[in-house]
Design a protein around this nucleic acid. Sequence first.
DNA 1: CGGGCGAGTTGAACGTGTTCAGAAAGTGTG
DNA 2: CACACTTTCTGAACACGTTCAACTCGCCCG
Lengths: 230, 230
Amino acid sequence: MTTLTTVSEPAPRTPKAEQTRATIVAAAMDLFRTRGFEGATMRGIADAAGVSLGSAYYYFSGKEHLIQAFYGQMQDDHLSAAREVLETETDFAARLRGVLTVWVEVAAPYHEFAGTFFKNAADPTSPLSPFSPESADARAASTAIFRDVVEGSDLKVASSLRPRLPELLWLLHMGMVLFWVHDRSPGQERTLALVSGAVPLVDKLGRLSRLPVVRGVVNDVVALLDYLDD
Amino acid sequence: MTTLTTVSEPAPRTPKAEQTRATIVAAAMDLFRTRGFEGATMRGIADAAGVSLGSAYYYFSGKEHLIQAFYGQMQDDHLSAAREVLETETDFAARLRGVLTVWVEVAAPYHEFAGTFFKNAADPTSPLSPFSPESADARAASTAIFRDVVEGSDLKVASSLRPRLPELLWLLHMGMVLFWVHDRSPGQERTLALVSGAVPLVDKLGRLSRLPVVRGVVNDVVALLDYLDD
DNA sequence: CGGGCGAGTTGAACGTGTTCAGAAAGTGTG
DNA sequence: CACACTTTCTGAACACGTTCAACTCGCCCG
């Protein structure tokens, strides 16, 4: 499977160049992990990768672009881990819980410095924002996972809601990420508790959505989503 | 009424010092508005304020801390505008809608460059994050508004939910802000549409929360919130 | 052969946020 | 007034992200 790069760098021509890129990324990830995003300097990264400062900028147009390699890596890891879950589980709640839990596990090694990355989430001018056009591919790949979560399950929800569910679950995921970023508990257990608590709620809400009394509100929600999509 | 500073700078001793602080803030706001956060340099701000670079750092420990003045200003404006609404309206939906709409109006002049500010929202290491301990005061002041929205209204919700409602509405507010930051429509009309659409939904959901079928889920939500609060 | 071309590489240089040792101005105290 | 002490102020200096003109190297074409 090809890498889910969010914003594509100029495609490397030679294997040699590809190799150099990988070396720089590895050095960057290493320094990010040990020194944090701010603490890792471009000069340090270039040194660690055995290239000059200018070369680092030849391959990556800036420090932020090095993050995208990180994003892509994490997304790939999550996708393959999620697949394993989705191959074995059929119950909706178990599928959703599995996919979310697995994200927390995949992201765990980066928890300490992830905050400095996800800062960009709220910056509409940054191409790194998960809502930006440049992140459309990554977003699509992510919602595809949740589409799979829904479609491969036995979940019964109001018919109007069903097509919107993947997006909504992606949004839930984003909320979880925000919580996770601020979660200082050991092993991010509070985030795991949030998942354990929230998933059954979503499950119940899904079932409730078919009740006549509730269906009205649900349809309103869907209508609002439709409107906001243009 | 005293200013709702989020993180307090060392309290100024003399009126002269207070004056200098105000001059710097004014210069900063001006340059932020015209050149954006990144485009405005500390040297430029110091020059515009007629002080040296070092002096700017004497009064404000860094560029980010200048943002807090901005936050405080906006919060004050919102609070007084919200009060006007809350004095005239008694219907819950109208009160909520008014408070949220008024925020959009108050924030409108800063919309263009607000994104660079709200970046900090997702950064757990920044004291500027609305979830940080340093922002506790500002957060409390903000939730107080929503407490007022609830308490001054005729809203009937499940009893377990009621004490949690202000926090939840504050969270809704944060969500609206995130949407607003990414909203490029003229006059932020999409955000206003979101408010117009979401408020009746919240209203309906509140009423539904008293139904026996729904109350179970609502209690689960509240229990989860209780747990996450420690 | 050579000469041109483009990919890859380099470090000096620029503008930035921030720090800091010390100067200047103010404020009491004898 | 003289002296100490604190508050206020200053710009040079530092490390950083980023840019760029110049360089090297391998390769193809005439």
